[in-house]
Nucleic acid binder design. Sequence first.
DNA 1: TTCAAAAACTGATAAAACTCATATTTTCCG
DNA 2: CGGAAAATATGAGTTTTATCAGTTTTTGAA
Lengths: 233, 233
Amino acid sequence: MKPQAPHCQSCQFKDSSLFKQCHIHELEELNESKCFNSYKKGQVIFHEGNRPLGIFCVYSGKVKVSRMGSDGKEQIIRLAKKGDTLGYRSLIDNTKYTASAIALDETEVCFIPAAEFNKLVDENVKVSTDLMKMLARALGDTQDKLIHLAMKPVRERLAEALLLLKSTYQEEGKTPFSISISREDLSSIVGTAKETVIRFLSEFKEDGIITTHGSEITILNPEKLVKISSMYD
Amino acid sequence: MKPQAPHCQSCQFKDSSLFKQCHIHELEELNESKCFNSYKKGQVIFHEGNRPLGIFCVYSGKVKVSRMGSDGKEQIIRLAKKGDTLGYRSLIDNTKYTASAIALDETEVCFIPAAEFNKLVDENVKVSTDLMKMLARALGDTQDKLIHLAMKPVRERLAEALLLLKSTYQEEGKTPFSISISREDLSSIVGTAKETVIRFLSEFKEDGIITTHGSEITILNPEKLVKISSMYD
DNA sequence: TTCAAAAACTGATAAAACTCATATTTTCCG
DNA sequence: CGGAAAATATGAGTTTTATCAGTTTTTGAA
């Protein structure tokens, strides 16, 4: 029933992923060494503290990358979607994973062993340049998150988080945008308590900005969210 | 009176900076194109919103990299010391500076034009590999900051900030560590209000962990700071 | 369909940190 | 050295957000 992984040469992300600059023979080699895997909602793709053995390419689904505090509180560092690369930072830095990657949906992922990845980066300058730009962009994004966490109140950060979910996961033309996400996960993106998230979501509902059905949130008025999120920019 | 910049070939950081893997002829070329500058305390080295024209190498002094909120609140993203590279993220990402670099002391900096930097990165794989690792490490550091900001209370973050200052700026053998830093800057590292910083510093003083003379803070008991900073790790 | 578990929601209270006001000390310029 | 400006320090009161306790709704499996 589950769709098999296509060959890298015919992968729908071959022209948009980190490997878009690869030659055909490189894609073939990639295809030989890669390993396809499925994860159910909640399953761990890689775990904080483990040594990276390669990198991951998301083929379908949604993934959260997050760290746990000792008090059980979770902070989501990044959201990944199909076509995204996971786990490259630790591999390059040659350190253990500092965060875990967990499937938010039924998710399919290709694993590329470190040896193959390193070979590719060494041999293809275009790939290594793209990788560098990816790192630079990720660094910029993380700095933005840091700034907003430090400077914006929860209401604005929540508005921003909803817009992030929309810009990350909205499919072409599917309007209005809807997503099923637990209040707990949402609070881990925003960096606050789940009750606080719920309260502000209720406020957004009263203002007609969103509606909810269970854990499903529908964004009716993204413009208002933009206005709220950038109140102090 | 001011010491002149030495040639890159005999720079004291030639074996520890980003350019440690350069050949002699590359260092010579670097030396030709570089431009040496001095900055007084408070002077801007590069400014948020401007386009990067190259990268900076700190030769002496201390630099803060920070962003301003519209309400005038500042968040310090990074502290740089002699031997460190500045402004590379924006250049690689080909975006405007998202933060400003400001001298915290009398500071000397070499500027390397983008063309020269890019040429070097293109031609010397070792340099580009090191640059990639630098980005990966910076990303890891920033993620750590994000997590701590989200999860740790101010008291712990302040202890951490003091340890960061110590690990960044303590000179070989100079014990106990002292640094002159405004409470305002310290609060911009921690991500809190300056009064809050002052209150916890007073507490640390009462506990004999630090002493202060004006804006000079001396760390008497770093071990206690470690204990405080990792209370919930 | 039903029921139990999980998740969403609501309210009350407490804690952490911010703001504002003001006193005191330090800095540094003339 | 003197004095004004800046920075540090402290106190009181307020705001924001967290925590805890409980209710209602949703979900998913028997």
